[in-house]
Design a protein around this nucleic acid. Sequence first.
DNA 1: TTGTACTGTAATGATTTTTATTACAGTTAT
DNA 2: ATAACTGTAATAAAAATCATTACAGTACAA
Lengths: 141, 141
Amino acid sequence: MIFITVMNNVRFATALHILTLHYYMKDEMLTSDLIAGSMNVNAAIIRKELSNLRKHGLITSKEGKGGGTALAKSAKEIRLSDIYNAVRQTSPLGKKNTPNPACPVGKQINAELDIVYNDVEAAMIKKLSAITLAAFCKPIK
Amino acid sequence: MIFITVMNNVRFATALHILTLHYYMKDEMLTSDLIAGSMNVNAAIIRKELSNLRKHGLITSKEGKGGGTALAKSAKEIRLSDIYNAVRQTSPLGKKNTPNPACPVGKQINAELDIVYNDVEAAMIKKLSAITLAAFCKPIK
DNA sequence: TTGTACTGTAATGATTTTTATTACAGTTAT
DNA sequence: ATAACTGTAATAAAAATCATTACAGTACAA
């Protein structure tokens, strides 16, 4: 088996929740404790994801007392595909095997799988890119 | 957290590999040992997936000596979306949190997430349904 | 009618992945 | 100086996934 880190987790939902909270509290810097409280998870996990979102240019942060995080750009400029790309780890169709190269099918199947995986993920991303953070947040509250 | 079984695994690749082998050996019943050999995995795992594929009407099987499995229908009638549905366990975007219901955002976000998740998965499935097993297998060998 | 070659399935264990927890150095406001 | 934060790492706990073993049941074939 190929054992790469995979997308079998709660990170997309977590990241989107974080950004949605920021959308609703535009004027304040949010602390990781506040965010963690809204989600019932540990603040260290939130800080870890915040760190990742910052690296991807979706939020800005300020250290020290009175610090926290804020959206790095307008919610109309953030697409759900940006969030997906920030948390993406592997294909939505899962992992691939490492088949027996002595078998003609085993030898070639992964190349064909790659094509399908890429195609399918592109369709997903296209859908996600049509939804902005602002549009996602609108129905909430 | 919601801890449901998730789609972070090799099952899609495994199922498609199984069906591809059957495509290339149309006239024979394949044994789980042969299939396992082509994939470098344990035969019991293959039998388990075969059992699932049979429940979903994609293969037929015959017990006893000389037994094995075969495609239940023409490879032109099997779509990759059928395979996806057979192995699907959870959303390609991952799991959802169980947010704090005392928070207005936490209270409503999962309903909105459901809409997005369904939408995105529908796009994936549409893409997968455009590819038949026969079309997938054609470039191999 | 007995042996052989299979499927079908369950039970158990090992491994990998994911999440939680704790800790603390560094930064900034007051 | 102290308090309130971020940033990050180390470690542990929990969950999901995969591997292995075992064996009952079925069907063919001699």
